[in-house]
C-alpha cells in the first residue's frame, strides 16, 4: 500500500468537494435508460466519490461488454443468424442492466456509505436522471432504426 504523508497538504488547487447522488436510485437509470446513461452517471459519481480508478475501469468495461453483446445479438437476430426475436433480447438486456447495477452498487457501497455518514446530503437525481433516461431511449430508438 502506498505510504501516506500525513503532514503534506491534501486540499490543493486540484481538490474538488466530494459529493454523490443516491446510488440506490441508479437502478432506475440502469433499467429505463440502459447501459450508456448508466455508465455516464456511474463514472461521474464514482469520480465524485474518489473511487479507485481500477473499480471505475472494471465497471465501464463490464458495461461496454454488455452493450457490445446486445448489439451483436441484435445484428445476428436481424440477419437471421440466431432464431431469437428482438423482444427477448431486449428483456435479457434489461435484466443484465440490473446485474450491472448490483455490481456497481457493490463497488461503490463503501465509499458511498462513507460519504453519507460524513456529509449526509446527496445531490438530486431528478433532472440528470430524466435527461439520461431520454438519452437511453434515444439510443435504443437509433439502434432499432439502424438495424431495421
Amino acid at each position: 500500500m502506498q505510504e501516506i504523508d500525513l503532514y503534506r497538504p491534501s486540499l490543493t488547487k486540484k481538490w474538488r468537494p466530494v459529493k454523490s447522488f443516491n446510488i440506490k436510485s441508479f437502478i432506475l437509470i440502469a433499467v429505463f435508460g440502459g447501459v450508456i446513461p448508466f455508465i455516464i452517471l456511474g463514472t461521474i459519481n464514482a469520480r465524485w466519490l474518489r473511487a479507485p480508478g481500477k473499480d471505475i475501469s472494471l465497471f465501464v468495461s463490464a458495461g461496454l461488454l454488455l452493450e457490445a453483446i446486445k448489439w451483436l445479438l441484435f445484428l445476428q437476430s436481424s440477419h437471421g443468424v440466431i432464431p431469437v426475436d428482438y423482444g427477448p433480447i431486449h428483456i435479457g438486456y434489461r435484466i443484465a442492466c440490473v446485474f450491472l447495477f448490483i455490481y456497481y452498487y457493490q463497488l461503490m457501497k463503501k465509499p458511498f456509505h462513507f460519504y453519507l455518514r460524513t456529509n449526509g446530503v446527496t445531490e438530486t437525481l431528478v433532472q440528470p436522471g430524466v435527461y439520461l433516461i431520454a438519452l437511453g431511449l434515444l439510443i435504443d430508438f437509433a439502434s432499432f432504426v439502424f438495424i431495421l
Partner: peptide, 8 residues
C-alpha cells in the same frame, strides 16, 4: 473524512 481523503 469530510473532504473525501478517507485513507489519510
Amino acid at each position: 473524512m469530510v473532504t473525501g481523503f478517507w485513507d489519510k
